[in-house]
Each structure stands twice: as structure tokens, then as C-alpha cells.
Computed example of a mutant assay.
Amino acid sequence: MSLAPQDTALRTWVRRLPKAELHLHIEGTLEPELMFELAARNGVALPYADVDAVRAAYQFTDLQSFLDLYYAGASVLMTEQDFYDLTMAYLRRIHADGVVHAEIMFDPQTHTHRGIPIETVFAGLARALREARDTLGISSYLLLSFLRHLSQDDAFATLESALPLRDAYQDLWIGIGLDSAELGNPPEKFADIYARCAELGFMLVAHAGEEGPADYVRTALDTLHVARIDHGVRSSDDPALLQTLIQRQIPLTVCPLSNLKLAVVSRLADHNLAQLLRAGVLVTINSDDPAYFGGYLLDNYLACAQALDLSHDELVTLAANSLNASFLPIAAKTRLLDQLTLAATQA
């Protein structure tokens, strides 16, 4: 179906706005076509007959139903070239969406538990990120994320295996995250390792308040001392917490189409992103796992613009929020914000 002229114009305008993506799982950008290509390359048998069968499986009832498919798909990632191909495909895609900076989460435990060396994961990701920096002009950072359904001891082992690589990737690996199944795995489960990562000078983020309650957001702030909350949509359930987010300008990296696909909301029109934005929360738009959730960053902006009746000024604010909430140096943020101001005024 073709876009209406006004929708085409909006897409062109939003694409032109410099934007950062701050909540993106690189394993979640594995499109079915690449999944089958890598499966054939590596001799991996998939539990799906073809690309259409994979896409037909994208009917999720909750986070866990998605994770089951997500981990099955990740099994095709085995070599440095696989991780490079995965990452470059994502970077080329977001370049077309007007993304100028990406802070990419990756889950080494998903791969090391399958016998893939952590060095292989880092090497493939970094080669693509550095190439995109030089050829596409996209800056980027890596956020090593621990799987919260596993133990803290397992997370410590992963950290210790990664630390010898820190010097080689110091231009990219700047942060630590926490993802996977939220229910039953509260933030305080990882208090000790977050304290260690803070001592090491890493920037800290964590998933909280997607499936879990608003209290998980508060605990991530007060116990893990994160600089940014991934998701955080349940924060509106706690008025005092909401005021804390506003007063401290704690960023929320919200993923609207993901929330819709995983039944966090039943309709995008019911999403609280606009409510949070208009209340003064430093909210950002992101795509989470776009290959599985039906939309990359630009798709999320446009879907929210239409479903939530966002104004042009609000879309510019969301783009500015993404730049301000990034871990870029102040000088880089200022340069990109100046570019945003210029782009926003162009018809």
C-alpha cells in the first residue's frame, strides 16, 4: 500500500533529523533472510522450513515467547564474519533512517554458552562499527549486557573474560547493560557486579519497568546506580518515581513497537510515551529488536507520530532527547544538536 502524500513528506522530514538509537540489541536485528544465509554457511539446522515460516512465528504473547525465538535465531552466529555481517546490515539500515549515533547492546553469554569465543563476538562487532564510522559517518558504542535469567556469578565470569579485551576496544566498549527476562530477576540480583563495573569506570544502564513493576525502575536507580533506564514504561504507575525521573532527567529508552508486539500495550494509541514526554520525562524512541518487532527506528518515530498525534516540535524534542541521553562527549552532542536545529527548520 502506498503512503499518502502527507505521510511521505513526514517520513522524509523525520529521516532528515539527526537521531541516536540507544536501545538496540544487535542479535535482534537478525532478519530471517540473513538467518537462513548464515545457517547454510555454518551448517546449522533451523526449526523453520523457510523465511515465511520464521516470520509466521513472530506472534508473541509476552517477552518469554519472543526470547525463545530470539535465542534460536542467535544459534546461526558462529564466526567473526557472521557478527560483522549482522552488524553491517543493521548499520546500513539505520543510515537510511538518519541515525548518526548508535549505542548497541550485545549478549556475550548467548554466544559463549554455545562455545563461541568472546573474542570472536567482539572482533566481528567492532570491525563493522569502525567501518561504519569511517564510511557512513555513524558513531557508536558497545554496551555489554548480562542476561538476568542467569546468575550473577555467570555475569562475573563473563566480565572477567571480557576485561582483557578492553584496551583493544576502548573506543567502542564503554558500558554495561542488563537484559533478558525481567520477571523474577529483580535488579538487586546484580548489585555486586554493577558495583564492580562502576569501579571500572563503565557507563551503566539496565532494563527495568517493561514487564516488571515500577519498583524495578527505582531499584535500578537506587541500587544499581544506572545512568539510564531501558524501557521504563511502568514508571508512570508510581507518581513519586515519575517526579524523580523528571527532576533528575533520567533518560528512558522506550521501544514503542516492541511494547506493542510483546503485548505491553494492546494498541499503540494506548502507549504512554506522549504522556511521559509531555510531563517532562527525558524519553527517547528506539527499536529494541527490529527484525522481530516489525520496525526500525524511523518506523517507530512515524508510528508514534500517527498513533499518539505527536507534533513536529515533539518529534524534534524526541530526536534531541536521544542525542542528549547518549554517552557521547559534550562537544559531539552540541555539534549534532546544532545539525538537528538546522534540519528541523528545513521544509
Results as ranks from 00 to 15, higher is better:
residue 238 D to H: 01
residue 243 Q to A: 11
residue 141 Y to D: 10
residue 32 P to E: 07
residue 310 L to H: 06
residue 344 A to Y: 07
residue 168 A to E: 13
residue 4 A to E: 15
residue 20 A to Q: 08
residue 337 L to Y: 01
residue 304 C to I: 02
residue 106 F to P: 06
residue 239 P to M: 03
residue 215 D to Y: 08
residue 275 Q to T: 14
residue 332 A to T: 14
residue 84 Y to V: 02
residue 73 G to H: 00
residue 286 N to P: 05
residue 118 I to S: 12
residue 18 P to E: 05
residue 43 G to D: 09
residue 49 A to R: 11
residue 113 H to R: 15
residue 157 A to G: 10
residue 211 E to S: 10
residue 171 D to K: 00
residue 37 E to I: 02
residue 70 Y to P: 09
residue 141 Y to G: 08
residue 48 Y to P: 09
residue 66 F to S: 01
residue 313 D to N: 14
residue 183 L to D: 09
residue 142 L to R: 02
residue 116 I to G: 07
residue 193 I to N: 08
residue 45 A to Q: 15
residue 286 N to R: 04
residue 246 I to H: 14
residue 218 R to C: 02
residue 253 T to W: 08
residue 132 A to P: 06
residue 47 P to R: 03
residue 175 G to H: 00
residue 257 L to F: 09
residue 259 N to V: 03
residue 13 W to R: 15
residue 306 Q to E: 15
residue 37 E to N: 10
residue 36 F to I: 03
residue 219 T to R: 14
residue 76 V to W: 12
residue 28 G to T: 01
residue 285 I to G: 08
residue 164 P to F: 03
residue 334 T to Q: 15
residue 16 R to Q: 14
residue 326 S to G: 07
residue 44 V to F: 12
residue 318 L to D: 10
residue 86 L to R: 02
residue 298 L to S: 05
residue 346 Q to V: 13
residue 221 L to G: 04
residue 193 I to D: 06
residue 18 P to S: 00
residue 320 A to P: 11
residue 167 D to R: 14
residue 6 Q to G: 07
residue 42 N to I: 02
residue 153 D to G: 10
residue 268 L to I: 04
residue 34 L to W: 05
residue 341 T to W: 10
residue 93 R to M: 11
residue 242 L to Q: 09
residue 86 L to P: 09
residue 191 A to E: 12
residue 95 H to P: 06
residue 83 F to I: 00
residue 218 R to Y: 07
residue 323 L to I: 13
residue 269 A to K: 08
